[in-house]
């Protein structure tokens, strides 16, 4: 489903984010990507979303080379990926409701009524049913993170890309979010999670890819956090 073929990303010659990385992720997998800060985890997700271009190598998503796609096709691929960004990347001038509804509106598959119903439902699910008309700046970090998650899952993507989704959260919120990701995965969605939270990875008992200085140093099927 997702394949990295000998992918390198070199910013400057002494700043190599990814160095000849290859791996394959099958549908419905739950993969944790771990490593220290600067190991290349975020770059990896950016390359998959075609937010950045690789210096060499190819990235495939559902057999399409994402960096060979035209602008007219790229956004369609992105609609199949639900991304949860480290810095949330919510739309600051849109309300919580609009941030979620926007995802359904751009797809143009739903009527306004359906969009409203789906949006309220997903916001109830993440516990923000009472804050739909708030702006992101009015929310706490944990609440923003939940909006980001709601946005990522609302249109039932094929894969969830979660970049340090628990980085800013207290342990209680962290557990909620990890449980939510597990639930999404059990319902059949592929999940890629980057983190440096040891407890999460150890509790998951799922596949773990370990990055170190841009290289894959370990790829275990039921891995633990070993650095």
């Amino acid at each position: 489903m997702i394949e990295f073929q000998e992918v390198s990303k070199i910013y400057t010659h002494d700043s190599i984010a990814l160095d000849n990385v290859s791996f394959h992720i099958k549908p419905k997998e739950f993969v944790s990507i771990i490593g220290a800060s600067g190991a290349g985890k975020t770059t990896l997700l950016k390359l998959l979303m075609a937010e950045e271009k690789p210096s060499s190598g190819n990235v495939f998503f559902e057999s399409a080379d994402v960096h060979a796609l035209s602008l007219g096709d790229l956004y369609k691929i992105r609609r199949k990926m639900g991304a949860i960004f480290q810095d949330f990347k919510l739309l600051p001038t849109k309300t919580v409701f609009e941030n979620i509804a926007f995802i359904l509106e751009i797809a143009d598959h739903h009527t306004d009524k359906e969009i409203e119903a789906d949006t309220f439902q997903i916001l109830e699910l993440v516990g923000l049913g009472n804050k739909t008309s708030y702006f992101p700046s009015d929310l706490s970090a944990g609440e923003r993170q939940r909006v980001a998650i709601a946005r990522a899952i609302v249109n039932h993507p094929d894969v969830i890309l979660a970049d340090e989704p628990t980085g800013n959260l207290d342990p209680l919120n962290t557990k909620d979010i990890v449980d939510l990701l597990i639930k999404i995965n059990e319902m059949g969605t592929t999940v890629i999670l980057t983190t440096h939270n040891k407890d999460i990875v150890n509790s998951l008992q799922k596949r773990v890819i370990t990055l170190e200085k841009g290289k894959i140093v370990r790829d275990n099927h039921t891995g633990a956090y070993l650095i």
Partner: peptide
């Protein structure tokens, strides 16, 4: 002033026209 927002909209799958 809205450049970041434009970037995010595109990342979450909005077409250029939208």
């Amino acid at each position: 002033n809205s450049r970041e927002e434009i970037k995010v909209m595109r990342l979450v799958g909005a077409s250029n026209n939208f």
